[in-house]
Amino acid sequence: MSLRYTYHYTIRVYPMLTSRLFTLCLALFLGISAAWAAPASMRTSTGSEIFLRTFPGEGNTLMLGFPCDEGLGTEEARASQSLARLGLEAWLPDMLGAHSLPALASSMDQLPPLEIAEVIGQTIKLSGKKVVLVTTGRGALPILQGAYMWQNQATPQERAALTGIILFSPELYSVKPAPGVEARYHSIVSRTSLPVFIYQGQRSPARWWLEHLKVEFTLGGSKISSTVLPNVRGYFYSVQDPTEEEKAMTERLPELILDAIKQLESKQ
């Protein structure tokens, strides 16, 4: 009786165990592979070491986010976690930290576009995934410059891996606009050929200048689309005093990013 029991156990249960063990090993292996694909830091030719927060996802698309205003990008990190659970891998390089710059929007002006270009290139190579760039406000300028720089030295195959860029409330004036004077955009706007998606808060004067900015983007051949987000300010997810509408919109960040990626993919 006891023998029969052992026999049955061995025949029926042991293969099940080996199968589970195999699955576990495979999962561990894949997990380790994913960890290898997501580096802790990147070195640039300028000598900077840029640390990354990474949120592995199983899908073929990776969001390369450059947090701006708060520097720490708290809400971006929360959104990245949610996106990773939905299969979208997310990497958030700490560009400000690499240069010991304070966590201020104005610090974004000091980021070297060459380093951005190298981070984009390394991300595409290391991940082997389609990459979408995401940034906010004054981050738009150095990130667009970096993307342009990278595109100019990339092969057509590599270029196809960069799906586009999502900009939240971008600030792209060449000089601070003065009342009554025609605004001038930085030349990178009319040189950009990447597909661009803009989210602009309704409760911001910039909302009224969105169409002007879009026209400027089309000059470089960029396929551009946008959405005005109702009842929120420009930096709705990093304001100190969020309204209930702004809190609700912040909760929707993952959904907004996924929607924008779909739009960008359709324009490739």
């Binding site: 606009p177 009342p179 009554g180 605004a183 004067p205 200048w209």
Partner: peptide
């Protein structure tokens, strides 16, 4: 605000009695 080219709130224009803008403050 498009015609007056206003990019920042508040933006203020001082108009003289003849209807000409004389000063502006952003």
């Amino acid at each position: 605000l498009s015609a007056w080219k206003v990019f920042v709130a508040p933006s203020t224009f001082l108009v003289d009695p003849k209807g000409n803008i004389r000063y502006v403050l952003q």
